[in-house]
Design a protein around this nucleic acid. Sequence first.
DNA 1: ATCGACTTTCACCTTACATCA
DNA 2: CATGATGTAAGGTGAAAGTCG
Length: 336
Amino acid sequence: MELALCLGDNTNKLSFLERPSKNNNNNPSASSTSTSDKDLGFNMGLDVLGFGGQRLLSSSSSPSLDDDKKNKRKLDDSDGFRVSSSVDPSLQLQLHFPWLPENSRQGGRMLSGAATVPEEEEEAGLSMSVSPPDSVTSSFRLDFGIKSYGYERRNNKRDIENDEVERSTSRASNEDNDDDNGATRKKLRLSKDQSAFLEDSFKEHSTLNPKQKIALAKQLNLRPRQVEVWFQNRRARTKLKQTEVDCEYLKRCCESLTEENRRLQKEVKELRALKTSSPFCMQLPATTLTMCPSCERVATSVSQPSTSAAHNIELSKSSFHSPLIPVKPGPGKQVS
DNA sequence: ATCGACTTTCACCTTACATCA
DNA sequence: CATGATGTAAGGTGAAAGTCG
């Protein structure tokens, strides 16, 4: 019998699994992402958003982020929302705006997405100028050098989007711009309400299409770029957490296999000892493996009825239920 | 139909900054 | 108060996919 299980020292060899480094270039994205969405149950909208369901069902059932990305791209396509309804389903987020007084909701219209906001108003960049009551350090006050960073490409959609919201948010942020012309990058902190709001949206769908992004940005009085970045970072955090979960699982698997390896090596040793001590036993034909149902240890038994009883008794002495040596994790050894 | 330029969005990595112990 | 750790918003980059002429 030859055993070549060599799992090695899991504590050493899997040290990279302990915690994914922030700068880990060897990101196990393929495996981790394949389970992330699925395991975390990100049902991408489904009918909650009023989508047809089937399209998103296929999207949400896609296990990997890459696939999800591809599906999302399809979803973002021009036909991505080819819904006959007059209300764009992509904007049917049932979002509430906790800090908004009822009478400020644009004349009593729902702010649950720009679905009720006329397109021309959306493109005109009209938005709320209501600040959340607790947005002490939010972007409402920290509109840091928007002109100075980022986008060299002008006249593209992103610039237009940002310009729209920038106009609407500049009123609230001007107060802090006097001493900051963009030379330094100030740290923006979203308010709790904004974060919670984005979190709720993320639970419904981990990616945004442009319309949803604009709608969210308007509702939160942020730039679409900020919403986009928040979702990107949120996906990264989700993936990181899922990677950690996966690593823990793999670690436990490795420990279990290491334990199994040790046990099998011990049995090999016992069988070798048995072979040398009573060589006549090993000359018996048709040896089969049987497993003890209680301890799941493997022992050999011989098919010949004349000798099997005595042999099994011998085996039970040597193999079954022998006291196990407590095993601590350590380097595995190769048995040949 | 094909091609190339351009745009958009994403993941990933990194940086800068705020916050907290 | 200083400091290091941590969390996170945002910048940079390259890839992928789409659009358009």
